[in-house]
Design a protein around this nucleic acid. Structure first.
Lengths: 149, 149
DNA sequence: TTTTATGTACTTTTAAAAGTTACGTAAAAC
DNA sequence: GTTTTACGTAACTTTTAAAAGTACATAAAA
């Protein structure tokens, strides 16, 4: 699948909190994303632990940003969702007894590691603020096109 | 998951056909792998289409190698299983209407492409013969250790 | 003390992979 | 030529791991 749907959703929420609503409840965010409030809380808790957002209970509660999006990288988001495996193939950590796999892993492990290092570096170099700007431009372009017709 | 279990199974079969039995029926291979003959036929058909193995029907039929394992690369095996996605993240080809994803993809696409190119090159550089040799060494080492105790 | 929110353990759904059954085709044995 | 042994493949079922959803506890403000 996708750009990992959790990652994509988190980006939506962060951009939205930054540009449009300042603070929102899990319920509101869930409606926006077309999902469930518990799903939102679950995915946001990773961001909270990293100090990117804060949540408050009770009346007037909800989620808000606690850090400038220029200081949040895609790598942060990736870590917030629990650093899921980047690759579909690769060493089977729980099957070390298979000698064929051991032989393959020995040859491939280094390459996979290099590829992962490359990707993490790229993640780190992209801030959510960059993406928000990019998004806004696309959105303007889209509206301009839509309104013209 | 794993090194993709299909890939791992195929390697087992190829090494086995090369070193131990020359020819085997789907049923025999299935027993060896602890699976079902239909599953074996399904996965071997990819190799057959690439000219790496041939199958014969009727009495005395079964599967045999038609190419030297020194001429079969891991990339061939990867292609034989249908080139499953290498990455868990990445452009969602069927969701191009999402502007946030478009923004992320625009920034990440090149990096993912580079990482994929790197991995395919490594796959291409590893032959199944290399792996078979490596496997044999591990197997000897394992037996030596096991028989000593 | 009632209402509105989050927090989280537990259950359900769901989508992908694996496995199975059933039946067709081909080739060798008898 | 008919019986047996295999592969070929479509259709179906099972497994299983991730995601979503439910229920209820906790916390804070009205």
């Amino acid at each position: 699948m996708p750009l990992d749907s959790r990652m994509s959703r988190m980006l939506h929420v962060l951009i939205h909190l930054d540009r449009h609503i300042e603070q929102a409840t899990s319920e509101q965010i869930a409606n926006m994303l077309g999902t469930n409030a518990v799903v939102v809380r679950r995915m946001m808790s990773g961001l909270r632990e990293m100090g990117i957002v804060a949540s408050e209970k009770g009346h007037g509660g909800g989620w808000r940003l606690t850090r400038d999006l220029a200081d949040v990288s895609l790598l942060d988001i990736y870590m917030a969702i629990g650093e899921p495996r980047l690759f579909n193939i690769g060493p089977h950590t729980d099957n070390p007894e298979c000698l064929v796999e051991q032989a393959v892993d020995a040859r491939l492990g280094q390459s996979l590691h290099e590829a992962e290092t490359l990707l993490r570096a790229r993640f780190a170099s992209i801030t959510v603020a960059d993406l928000a700007t990019d998004f806004e431009q696309r959105f303007s372009a889209y509206r301009a096109k839509y309104e013209k017709s």
